[in-house]
Design a protein around this nucleic acid. Structure first.
Lengths: 354, 354
DNA sequence: AGGATTTATTGGCACGTTCCAAATCAGACT
DNA sequence: AGTCTGATTTGGAACGTGCCAATAAATCCT
């Protein structure tokens, strides 16, 4: 009995069928099943169909672990995003997803929430699973030294954020130029006391945007006033906290360029609560142009970065590098254009300047 | 030469060190390294340290594929979310993430964007990688028959959404009761022409919320008018399209309960554009209470579901089931409470009723 | 001291897949 | 009939890790 019984029990163990089970069922060798799996043209049509039938009859599932063991690549891309509570990064993630549609890769997202320890765990886990590549927007306090050994030889594309010194491709918006344009626009609206609000000093993105702000001031011969530059958390709440420091001073600000839209919207709410008419008494400009910027009241003027496009470009770059095997770091800058809406306008005439 | 050379070359192949390489370097057997890896108390402290040192010297990375091959569980949870452009689901995902902090599991997120084909791919990929369990918010048009074989014996917890007939745990808000409370509140504000706006008929969540809406009407002896129930896409844009059908009719609506906040906010914008004062001329109530609801103007009255809590509860349930090995389906209902803000108020006295 | 028990360590096999070289087969041609 | 060619198919032999049974070393008990 034992011999015939062994022949009959096709599915071994805990219900998970293997290619050997499939092979036995279809009356071929496991090698043939493997060929069918990889879509090889070597196998005859009739055989292919017999094997496919056996697979679905047994509810076969491919065991990727066994495959990566033999060196096969896994077909997953890891995205590591750090601030999913900022809609901009969600739009970026969606852009990445969409760019991968129909391609050979499936992206998985992990949110590290600015926790660099968690970021390390997540990256390690992705590497352990044999991710083919990584799309990374590093946590604010990421240490280069701890990140480097973990990434090893995995192809990495940095999106939006960038870790100085990391030898990896970068896809980012023209932060400096965008901020310069926005500030120049406010100056053209005859604002002279223009604040820069939001973000923490350790963020490279903020450095770039701040540099654009200063460049525009310099070009207009407006002196830079450190009192008008305020660090905050990059959250709705953060935007609110900045307000007193801008209005309760000798020469109050009449306009603000915010580090991003989330901060701007938080600030807009605080302004409304303080009875200041945004767009008339005070001009507000955000950055990123998230979808919500169109729905605020008044609608928010913002520097459009197009997060979806940014994500898509990054995903395309990574997939192109994976396909070609050439991982030389590249830098892609995406345009940032000013979108004027109702939250900004001419400076009120009460100011000290002409 | 060949013999001594073979002994010296610790790291084989393409730079990836194995447990055997580590063992040789530390002067122990691979079994001992394996024990160190699993944190066993069997291994002596001195040995453990020697092994750990060897691991970091070689830049060893654990090969999870090989481990799952031997039957080990992978430590990843898969979350499959379908509408990441709805901030509610983002909040839910963050809740899941937070609940996994410090636990033994790392959650990976995949966005299927209501594409059931993609959802299948993503689920298959997660299963192939040996995910320990799945947190699923199924795509709208998911077919039970195609989902079932793919899930197989993987533990699944459905969050927010639910696929009728799927034998898996569910964590969801009290949709019916929440909608009932919101509608009763509008009735108490003396509204009589109350619309229900948004969502598509195929959504179970909508069915439940609509049922609550009807229950409140029935309790107040207000006749149900199908003309006041409008299907839309669950997007900002969708909310806007509904407006003409509510105002350009014989007895216009004076209030609306929206399927969710995104629809409500879209509708609020359309109302503002039409010159209708939200909160005075027209009362608007959303559902979910996403963070943005507090930032609209006027601030949006909404039925608070607490997406973070919902996600956290689901993650806890799944992890508890994984720890105990008992996968009997459970149902967890989370409270939904009405949060009144400025977007709703008493009905204008121009109406036909008392 | 000698066995019993505990504490550390170790080979070797198995897991499910891919790849390679080799084998088989069906015609076609010499 | 034998040989060649191209089209299919097939046995292994890895890949890196976990587990089990066995061993070696150290400690205990009487």
């Amino acid at each position: 009995m034992s011999d015939s019984a062994r022949d009959k029990e096709i599915v071994t163990r805990d219900g998970r069928a293997t290619i050997v089970d499939v092979a036995r069922r279809a009356g071929v060798s496991k090698s043939t099943v493997s060929l069918v799996l990889s879509g090889s043209s070597l196998v005859a049509d009739a055989t292919r169909q017999r094997v496919s039938a056996a697979m679905s009859e047994l509810g076969y599932i491919y065991h990727r672990g066994a495959a990566t063991l033999r060196g096969a690549r896994s077909g997953v891309l890891g995205m590591v995003i750090n601030d999913l509570s900022n809609p901009f990064f969600v739009e970026m993630a969606i852009g990445i997803e969409e760019a991968c549609q129909g391609g050979a890769f499936i992206p998985f997202l992990a949110n590290a929430a600015e926790n660099s320890l968690r970021q390390l765990q997540v990256l390690r886990s992705m590497r352990e699973h044999g991710a083919a590549g990584i799309l990374l927007s590093p946590a604010i306090d990421t240490q280069l030294s701890e990140l480097k050994p973990l990434l090893g030889d995995m192809p990495v594309v940095q999106v939006m954020r960038r870790l100085p010194g990391l030898k990896a491709s970068v896809v980012a918006p023209e932060n400096k130029e965008g901020a310069r344009k926005a500030t120049a626009y406010l100056i053209a609206q005859s604002h002279r006391r223009i604040a820069f609000v939001g973000g923490l000093a350790s963020m490279t993105v903020r450095d770039e945007r701040l540099a654009g702000y200063r460049a525009a001031l310099d070009a207009a011969r407006i002196p830079f006033d450190p009192a008008l530059v305020i660090e905050t958390m990059t959250s709705y709440a953060g935007g609110g906290t900045a307000l007193p420091q801008l209005l309760n001073i000798a020469e109050p600000a009449t306009a603000a360029l915010c580090f991003n839209d989330v901060v701007a919207i938080g600030m807009m709410r605080a302004l409304a609560a303080a009875g200041v008419a945004v767009g008339r008494d005070f001009s507000l400009v955000g950055f990123d142009d998230i979808e919500e910027a169109r729905h605020t009241y008044p609608a928010l003027t913002s520097v459009a970065v197009n997060g979806k496009n940014l994500g898509a470009r990054a995903a395309q770059l990574l997939m192109r590098q994976l396909a070609s095997g050439n991982f030389a770091p590249e830098t892609v800058l995406c345009p940032a254009t000013l979108v004027v809406r109702a939250s900004s306008g001419a400076a009120p005439r009460t100011g000290a300047s002409a």
